[in-house]
Simulated assay, not measured.
Amino acid sequence: MVEGLGKIFHSISCKSEAEGRSVAGTLHFNAAPDAQTLYNAMKGLGTDEQAIIDVLTKRSNVQRQEIAKSFKAQFGKDLIESLKSELSGNFERLIVALMYPPFKYDAKELYDAMKGVGTRESVIIEILASRTKAQIKEIIKAYKEAYGSDLEQDIKSETSGYLEQILVCLLQGERDNATLYVDTALALQDAEALYAAGEKIRGTDEIQFITILCKRSATHLMKVFEEYQKLAGKSIEDSIKSETRGSLEDAMLAIVKCTRNIRCYFAERLYNALKGAGTDDGTLIRVLVSRSEVDLNLIKPEFQRIAGKPLSTMISEDTSGDYKTALMNLCGSD
């Protein structure tokens, strides 16, 4: 019976995974002709951008890695370097992003967020709050391999105070694995501890918030949030907003949002990247690239609910040229 249930859950999760992908790759895949197409698109004067878009936005990440290997074997050149030398601007940024394996791409985004003057805390928060503990382990490894540097040390040197503590806590990957069973007594105890640490006192015991948010599983936290609402008469989000400020508030809210509904969290990130004057291209590219083979199709209905219009419409209104064409391919129809 248990084994049968396991099979049912597995098939349900596989189905929702397949439904979630906006990019699934091609069935009759052959890396060699794809590599040849890319080589032809870049050789000589001028570049055939459309050919590059047609190949790279319609292959899965695993297939893109095979194309890069074949490109190197056939032409003795590194595909990423070749693309960088032929393309420019946001179009280059997007196409190059597609060429990185997921964990290496997350590591690169974290590195880029910390190098140079100033730190883009929102990028670090987004990645660390939304990845599983297994994924975080792989990102730490990929970061070390790519940059010869320790991700935790780099985050410590770029951040301080409670923000540093919450990010380092997330990096430890100590969040419990989600299980169907929730210890109601412990959830109530956690809710009481959060209430005592925030609403009940003048000032806030941030460490208590950080510990519970970073170490408990999503299913457990959902119960904690429910109990908290009963105790405080307001949501955990409202309490965080009234008790904290700045990047610490952003980090705590990101954890809560990813716990409640990760698709809604990414829909909000995309909406904030596209609304108003100017576009946050970094966030737009990162979310589309990192979620296109995970759950982008399930993020789109959440986006429409928040924005009142489809994601593809807003991308179309905000971008242009080859960059727009490539983004629209990744997004797929709404």
Results as ranks from 00 to 15, higher is better:
I80V: 15
Y181C: 04
E126G: 03
A107C: 11
C258N: 07
Q63L: 10
R269L: 05
L27Y: 14
S316I: 08
G246R: 12
A197Y: 03
L87T: 15
R286K: 02
P102L: 06
A267M: 11
A273P: 01
R263I: 01
L311N: 03
I201E: 05
E268R: 11
T57E: 05
S13K: 04
R202Y: 10
G161R: 14
K324M: 13
E174N: 14
A251D: 05
V117I: 14
L170K: 01
H28W: 08
F103N: 08
L167K: 02
F225H: 08
A41W: 12
S82T: 14
S85M: 01
S13V: 08
L128I: 09
S157V: 08
D334S: 10
R245D: 14
Y39E: 11
L79T: 00
I262L: 09
R202E: 14
T211Y: 02
G46N: 07
C264R: 02
K108T: 13
L98C: 05
S22T: 13
K156R: 11
S122G: 04
F266K: 07
R305S: 13
G321T: 11
R269A: 04
A251M: 08
V2S: 10
M1L: 08
A277C: 15
A73M: 13
A326S: 14
M328F: 07
T132R: 06
R202I: 10
A68V: 04
E199H: 08
Y323R: 02
L270W: 00
